[in-house]
Design a protein around this nucleic acid. Sequence first.
RNA 1: CGGGGCGUAGCGCAGUCCGGUAGCGCGCUUGGUUCGGGACCAAGAAGUCGGAGGUUCAAAUCCUCUCGCCCCGACCA
Length: 572
Amino acid sequence: MRLSKYFLPTLKEFPKEAKEISHILLLKSGLIKPLMSGVYEYLPLGWRVIMNIQKIIREEMNRIGGQELLLPVLTNREIWDETKRWDDFGEEMFKFKDRNKRDICLAPTHEEVITDLARREIQSYRELPQLWYQIQTKFRDEPRPKGAVLRIRQFIMKDSYSLDRDFDGLAQSFDLHYNAYKRIFHRCGLDVIVVGASSGVMGGSESNEFMFLSESGEDTIVLCNRCDYAANLEVATTRLNPVQGESKEIEKVHTPVSGTVNAVSNLLGKPKELFIKSLLYIVEEKSVFVLMRGDHEVNEGKLASYLGFEFRAATPEEVKKLTGADIGYISPVGINNVDTYADSSLKVSTGMITGANKNEYHIKGVNIERDVKIKEYIDIITVKAGDPCPQCKSGTLKIKKAIELGHLFKLGTKYSKSMKCLFTDSDGIEKPIVMGSYGIGIERIMASVIDKFHDKDGIIWPVSIAPFFVHIIPIDLTNIKVRETSNQIYNTFVKEKFECLIDDRDERPGFKFKDAELIGIPIHIIVGERSLKEGVCEVKLRREEKKSKVSPEKVIAFVKELISKEEKRYEV
RNA sequence: CGGGGCGUAGCGCAGUCCGGUAGCGCGCUUGGUUCGGGACCAAGAAGUCGGAGGUUCAAAUCCUCUCGCCCCGACCA
């Protein structure tokens, strides 16, 4: 490709609103342009990268027996009503009416469409398993898009769906994806961490997320410093040892400070872990106490799995009405008609401090089993850095930011049951198909690669997804020898079907070097009068400083060798 | 949805407080010089000042409403 004819709007200046490095470089290097909030145009150079990522994904999906298809983006309301997801997705779906006033939505994902297809076409266990995938644009009306393509409202996803006759089959399909995903990310140059995660609106039993560690990430993951425990903060657990304070009997203490654990802890000179934090929630009009240690915060996502999705924190007025005290001075001690859930870490705790249900007073010496009627001990706290690992004996947990690149869901029969997607098994009994669903965010791979492979001058594409292999930089096109040599090299590459860019623009050298470094093609060939006098041109890897002097005749072979060496870095 | 910021030439911004009819840098066009790290000279084109309404002799500037974009939070397969 000749740069003089190529649409590559690189920027010298860019909006200061761009903060994440991937956002800055995507805009600066002319890979994408914004159209509206959370919607981007993918320009030729960026689209090449995306196509290369897709190519890797196709190869790996086909390798595990995936069959590519393409499902509609326009979908009718009825199928979403069958699984209640028309309402569950709510505002996140782009919804509208067609001219006949029928409800339509732009698909945010395709479980319903796949299940509908399968129930019409799959009748017998002989037709199972199936593994179908597509690379398709998805639409989600995110409340707040951000970081360029990290969270957008229209994005490209590889989504696959496995159909199996039983859960053993599902486990196999799941494993196939697990391994395919590892290969995909490795080939793209990314190291990923697999974490246990929440299934959210997708439902199902087990889910794994493939995470790329980055400060730009929106997800928070929890890792053990000793073993392989890794989980999304949404579901991460810990194993706190029960704590025992000194006092045995309940005793009221005057605490004339704001009722926060911090303030009271300072006042009394007692560590926060000896406090019981009492939160009041309203579930379907009923009050519910939720207790946890003073040194931890509640995890409302976990809470939802016990209380259901319809719950809210009680208002200050409701708190006062029930307990007679303000938030900060309350506890379930002495209040018997309210369901009380406690975090598992509170079990057998004694000598604890908590609110006295009277403003500016707390009580100490609380023995939770003796003094509070606990309906159930459950896991409801948000893990903190430094908490002990729930899996190994000696490890402690650390917390990192990450970008979610892929997600595997064991859906089980959630969709097949509600949509009656049944097959006849070999025993003659009609059973629901056992399903899995597996997604990869294509743009997020691109952003993550930039996040990992860049320097102060720009992007450094791994050769596996680079938009071109070679970038020829003729220093001075008015010099006939420079022009002829660079064109000759370029033509040979084209003939040999090597993706090659030549900067044949009438620009000065510095300008061309800057652009070349910005867009980050892996191999630069510099053709200038100075080196041609020595009978050579210069070949340089974008990721290295070192330049090699190679004669124009040998440059093709030299570069080919270099590319194949680079490719080895990303082979599986 | 809450909090904050911003919409002025293709891009990045100043001008708004204190009203007087729009400017800077980059880019673009033409001509010339230059050519190993985002060149220089000369000439030039280009703006409904996000939109609507109002106040005023006069509005980018003041008032009201509205649309959009970004950031923080809430939310998020």
